[in-house]
């Protein structure tokens, strides 16, 4: 695999990049902070067999004008990538987002509009070379409109719908889309929130996602138990959803 990862500086992206590096995949990291990227690239380099140097370039989801240059840099370093992984994203609690419209606008823009723009740029490149994999982190929060995550969930619902559409439209043409739907995972994104039962660890999520990328699975829940949890939640009638707190 020759993979570009946007969001490898933290959390599940960091875990994923490490596991990919350890098994010898060629990597190129994109993110918004140069010194952080440098450190994460060094970390991946140390984990790659033979300490092969992992490159990086800046790419901020807040700034779509930079997407092409970032992907050019990745293409050049990797000699044409075949996989693009996006773990980057923002979170805010419902209370935070309701209280702060700037933050809400930023979240909706970054998590949905700009992520889609980035994926479109990546998709064009992958399809131009005949095939490739686009793996993007959405969320279980996008599966159903739910009280605690109305706004964040809406941004992820849009993203999930986009990824599902891509799979339907382009799978036959060689584009493999993998939509990852994590449940609650212990990263700094969720630090300070009370973990529900079945909270996951980034490492376990990462190995599950890597396996899904290898097999080209269109949708993957992680930890796996969330597939069943969400199955039940999707079946609950509206009057129940209005009553319950999740």
């Amino acid at each position: 695999m020759k993979a570009v990862i946007l969001g490898a500086t933290k959390g599940m992206g960091r875990a994923l990049a490490r596991q990919a590096a350890a098994r010898g995949d060629a990597l190129f990291l994109l993110g918004r902070n140069t010194s952080d990227l440098e450190r994460s690239a060094a970390d991946c380099t140390a984990r790659t067999p033979g300490q092969v140097k992992v490159g990086f370039a800046t790419c901020d989801l807040a700034d779509p004008d930079g997407f092409d240059a970032a992907l050019d840099a990745a293409d050049e370093a990797l000699g044409g990538f075949d996989t693009v992984i996006v773990t980057a994203g923002m979170f805010g609690t419902q209370e935070q987002l309701e209280a702060d419209l700037d933050r809400l606008r930023a979240l909706l823009t970054v998590n949905f509009a700009h992520t889609v723009l980035f994926c479109e740029a990546a998709r064009a490149r992958l399809m131009a070379r005949g095939s490739g994999t686009l793996c993007v982190f959405s969320s279980v929060a996008g599966d159903r409109g739910r009280k605690p995550v109305v706004l964040y969930g809406a941004s992820k619902a849009g993203l999930s719908a986009y990824l599902e559409g891509l799979d339907h439209r382009y799978r036959a043409a060689g584009l493999v889309t993998v939509c990852v739907k994590p449940g609650f995972v212990r990263t700094s994104m969720t630090e300070g929130l009370t973990p529900p039962p079945f909270a996951g660890e980034p490492d376990t999520v990462a190995s599950r996602v890597l396996a899904a990328v290898d097999r080209g699975k269109p949708v993957v829940y992680a930890p796996w138990i969330w597939a069943w949890v969400m199955w039940v939640i999707r079946l609950l009638p509206r009057f129940v959803m209005r009553k319950v707190g999740f």
Partner: peptide, 10 residues
């Protein structure tokens, strides 16, 4: 045309 993202928010 996506709306601009205020820098502080990020």
């Amino acid at each position: 045309d996506a709306p601009p993202v205020p820098p502080d928010a990020l």
